[in-house]
Amino acid sequence: MVRLTRTQQQQRTRAAVLAAARAEFAQRGYGEARVDGIAERAELTRGAVYSNFPSKRALYLAVLLDAVDGATGPVAPGPPSGLAGAVGAFTRTWLDRLPLPGDTPAAGNLALRSLTGVFDDEPGRAALANLARLEAVLLGLALEACRPHRRRVRLAELVLTLLHGAGHLAETAPGFGDPFDVVRAAEHLAGLDLADAWDPPHLPFVEPARPVDEAWTPPADLPDLCTGRPVGLGADGVVAVLGTGRLDAAEEAVRAARPDDAVTIAVQTGDPAELGRLVRLRIGDLAGCLCRVFGPDHPDARPRLVLDEGGALAHALGVAATDDTEAAVRIRAGRIVARAGGRGAGHAAAGARG
């Protein structure tokens, strides 16, 4: 008889809990699912479930994240032709998650990655709102590469609004509407003149970054949430440290950065089990769609996104690690040459000389 190591036993227990939770959520839905039912399905104690996942919400997010990480699909050999083509391709890819006709409501919601009723607290709602804005920035930057020199974030916001509306209808009124009509509508959005300009009113009043000359030792490379590849944190450029309640400030660093800057957005949260998983779920889901549409090596202006769950990067930079953090530094030749904090920090650090 082969004896398992402690680590192997923990991995087996976690896998059993995830499998049982997936079955429970698919049968009963998030609201009606019970941790006791999950423990019974896994033939474990309630305590064994909680030793791996601190809450039902954390477990539900882990099930969704596991599905996103395991999702597969054809990857485009290159970017689609034209802006409308890119919008249509992204829309078709996103709509692959719509439930099948024979799915139960609970199983359909799981396929949709539905978060209805999951976050009913202020930190969760704030994180969701900020993640929606960050998703629009990432999609907008990818679309801008199809037709340069025009901001496309407002177009991305409209596309995501259309898609989440289609998802909500699939959840509440299954079978309503034709997905092909949704794709055609999204393609027509690309032809709208949205007068999209980048001119946040507060940026002219942001205090300049403070010049410094400080050595720092970056932590081990963290994986990019969009590509999965290690991020070289010592590269020249800007590192913006943003809490889950301040992710809407990411675009400020991107727009103010120099063409050759490496722009890294380091996401901070004091709740890695729930908000940390939420970040990985939403960004991983979007990144998977972008990869299938534009290819894994599409040369867009996307920033590097890392989740600094343990706060090691924030600590190395001498920055507080909270859900409300907004701070940024400019790195040159392995040294910190400028610092900024508070509203507009990413803009200030990106625009600093150094």
Rank of each mutant, 00 (worst) to 15 (best):
L65Y: 01
L65W: 05
D66S: 11
D66W: 03
A67Q: 06
A67V: 13
A71M: 03
T72K: 02
G73M: 07
P74L: 02
V75D: 15
A76N: 01
P77L: 15
G78D: 14
P79D: 03
P79R: 14
P80F: 01
P80I: 02
P80C: 04
S81L: 12
S81W: 04
G82Y: 13
G82A: 12
L83A: 05
G85D: 06
G85F: 09
A86P: 09
V87Y: 04
A89P: 02
A89H: 03
F90I: 15
F90C: 01
F90L: 00
W94I: 06
L95A: 05
L95R: 00
L95T: 01
D96R: 11
L100R: 10
L100N: 00
P101A: 01
P101Y: 08
G102H: 04
G102N: 02
D103S: 11
T104N: 09
A106P: 12
A107N: 12
G108T: 00
N109E: 11
L110D: 10
L112I: 04
R113N: 08
R113L: 13
S114P: 08
S114K: 03
L115D: 15
T116F: 07
T116M: 01
G117E: 10
G117A: 12
G117K: 10
G117S: 11
V118R: 03
F119P: 08
F119Y: 10
F119M: 15
D120M: 15
D120V: 07
D121V: 13
E122D: 14
E122W: 14
P123S: 15
R125Q: 13
R125P: 15
A126P: 05
A127S: 12
A127F: 07
N130H: 13
L134A: 02
A136I: 11
V137I: 09
L138N: 12
L138R: 10
A142M: 06
L143I: 04
L143C: 05
L143P: 05
E144P: 02
A145P: 00
C146Y: 02
C146F: 02
R147V: 15
P148W: 04
P148K: 01
R150W: 14
V153G: 14
V153P: 09
L155S: 04
L155R: 01
E157R: 05
L158Y: 15
V159P: 07
V159L: 13
L160I: 09
L160V: 03
T161M: 12
T161N: 09
T161K: 02
L162E: 09
L163T: 12
L163C: 08
G165Y: 01
A166E: 11
G167E: 12
A170I: 12
A170D: 07
E171Q: 11
E171N: 13
T172W: 15
T172K: 06
A173Q: 06
P174W: 06
P174D: 02
G175A: 06
F176V: 00
P179V: 10
D181Q: 06
D181L: 11
V182I: 08
V182R: 14
R184W: 12
R184E: 15
A186C: 12
A186N: 11
E187G: 04
H188R: 10
H188E: 08
A190W: 04
G191T: 00
L192W: 08
L192S: 03
D193S: 10
D193Q: 14
D193N: 04
L194T: 04
D196P: 09
A197Q: 09
A197R: 04
